[in-house]
Design a protein around this nucleic acid. Structure first.
Lengths: 172, 172
DNA sequence: CAACTCCATGTGATCTTATAACGTTTAACG
DNA sequence: CGTTAAACGTTATAAGATCACATGGAGTTG
């Protein structure tokens, strides 16, 4: 993995979209919204799944599956990898979370309900991640796909660089 | 890994950009071009690195690091993972190959020398991969990055869907 | 309620992907 | 030729992900 110098589980200096914010209640609101979505769509928002979402929201950063597993175990759930992977799979499949391929990590969705074609900005220094919107299928990529006869079902866009905080620290 | 039903090492039905083509000599020309680039930039285009590039060009599909390792071993090089990872790292760092994060696999660059900001179209059925050009930093993402103060150093764009051949086979 | 079905959960085992660490070799340079 | 830095080969191990199978609970149907 191309990983920076940050010690394993230290929290990044600036968790949400590079801006501090008070998220005392954004967790409960996001959970409630997920709960509603599940109820409306016949999905089972079970305890592990709910807890996994809460953990992602609480951390507000990209979390590896095994980090998630540790926290789920601490919360009294199973202790084997599939426990974490299954919960994460559910959250990702339903748009409550996203996988950051570049980091092999997962993060709570920052724009729940939005028309998802998320793009991520990943700081190579502190690993913080911010979510933005994108529509790559409308630009050059979409054109190439149509020309080639490729049917796009989903896209992932990840930009690597320096977050504002790290730009200042290391003007390099 | 989110992987399709294709047996482990079977070649995809249609390897290059979803179009068959005769690449009898495109290998040697790509290798020559890489060689020249290295000479001009003081890079060492060693036997393993050359062989690794040849293998990627020959296969003309995304190859896992361990698949690469097998082939390098067969060719008489070392047999331990770092051998493959180091060669691939060199090729990627210098733009001769790209890593497809979604597949944890590597593929020879299809537009050597081009101003790289590649985008990939990945078939979820047969795993074939085509390379297109993109410029995500110029669209909504670039705007968001500027607004947030994020300094983009590189982007990766990967679209998942169905290649033309698989669209026909499985109209679903 | 009983029987059935579907899905979710928990667990052990295993597989795949990737890196760390270290000694040796090789190419480049003065 | 001696020095130095990069590349190589190998052992070992870390990190990420999946398989397979048994258990258990929520609905549904009769």
């Amino acid at each position: 993995m191309t990983s920076g110098p940050r010690p394993q589980n230290a929290p990044p200096p600036d968790p949400v979209g590079f801006k501090r914010h008070d998220h005392s209640d954004c967790i409960s609101s996001a959970v409630a919204s997920a709960e509603q979505h599940c109820a409306e769509n016949g999905l089972r928002f079970t305890p592990v799944r709910r807890k996994a979402l809460e953990i992602l929201l609480q951390e507000h950063r990209a979390l590896g599956a095994y980090d998630m597993l540790d926290r789920l175990r601490d919360a009294g759930f199973g202790s084997q990898p599939p426990v974490a992977y299954r919960a994460l799979e559910f959250l990702v499949a339903n748009g409550f979370a996203h996988k950051i391929e570049r980091l092999n990590a997962f993060i709570a969705c920052a724009h729940p309900g939005a028309n998802h074609s998320p793009a991520f900005m990943i700081c190579r220094q502190c690993q913080s991640v911010a979510e933005a919107q994108s529509a790559p299928a409308r630009g050059a990529l979409g054109h190439a796909a149509r020309a080639a006869g490729f049917q796009i079902e989903g896209t992932m866009v990840e930009a690597v660089g320096l977050c504002p905080a790290c730009v200042e620290k290391a003007p390099s």
